[in-house]
């Protein structure tokens, strides 16, 4: 039983990693004109956040370092909620083990482990999934950087869709399980759009507010189901 759970966790890691692969390559390609290979790899090693790293690239030319740090902090604070769920599911594990796992929480590793079975909820299984995804991200950022030197502009622009395709690929299976996840996601999109067109509203705050409010709708939907 434990063996199959580990096997499934390793497969989950590879699945996330394969999803990361084109996104990481896209990141490396976009980073190539802006920074050294070492900085690119360090970013993937130390920040480990797709959306955040693309945001840094966008802001690098026009914003101060402080503005970048604040924007990334706000954008990444969503991981607080995700890491909370991971820690909650693994409450039985020691503090140190949870600490290690927490530092590898991403949207994708979270989305996949959020549906984990009871047998899968051990340190080893989570660690296998997380570390494999992490290695894919770091290695293929470097590969993308090197590939960027000979890629044409068209491919570089087209690879901008990679991150979004990954998000969509993670969302659709959940909506297939239950439509209410789709309602929550679409509500989140609408909220984020509304907040994003408010002039000078900080984009990081808009993201967090939209996430927290949209999830609230999910809670309300679930509650009304229980009472009916």
């Amino acid at each position: 039983m434990a063996q199959t759970a580990l096997k499934k966790s390793i497969m989950d890691g590879i699945t996330i990693g394969m999803g990361y692969l084109p996104v990481a390559i896209a990141f490396g390609i976009s980073a190539e004109p802006l920074m050294s290979l070492l900085d690119t790899v360090l970013m993937s090693l130390m920040i480990y956040g797709g959306a955040s790293q693309f945001l840094v690239l966008q802001m690098l030319a026009s914003s101060s370092a402080l503005a970048i740090v604040i924007a990334v902090f706000v954008l990444n604070s969503r991981h607080f909620v995700m890491a909370f769920k991971v820690n909650y599911d693994l409450k039985h594990e020691s503090f140190l083990k949870r600490l290690v796992l927490s530092s590898y929480v991403t949207d994708e590793s979270f989305a996949v482990t959020a549906n984990s079975t009871r047998e899968q909820r051990t340190f080893l299984n989570y660690f296998a999934t997380f570390i494999i995804a992490y290695l894919f991200w770091v290695v293929f950022s470097a590969v993308g950087y090197l590939a960027g030197e000979w890629m044409s502009d068209g491919w570089i622009v087209a690879s901008g869709i990679a991150l979004y395709a990954l998000f969509i690929a993670l969302l659709v299976p959940a909506v297939r399980v239950h439509y209410k996840y789709g309602i929550v996601a679409v509500f989140g999109m609408i909220l984020h759009y509304i907040l994003s067109i408010i002039p000078s509203f900080p984009s990081g705050i808009a993201i967090i507010a939209a996430i927290l409010l949209a999830a609230l709708l999910g809670l309300i939907l679930e509650r009304s189901e229980v009472y009916n």
Binding site: L171, Y181, L191
Partner: peptide, 13 residues
């Protein structure tokens, strides 16, 4: 908490 990932994916897309 269970709804956070789906809300987050929508918002990020």
């Amino acid at each position: 908490l269970n709804y956070i990932p789906y809300a987050a994916l929508g918002v990020l897309i």
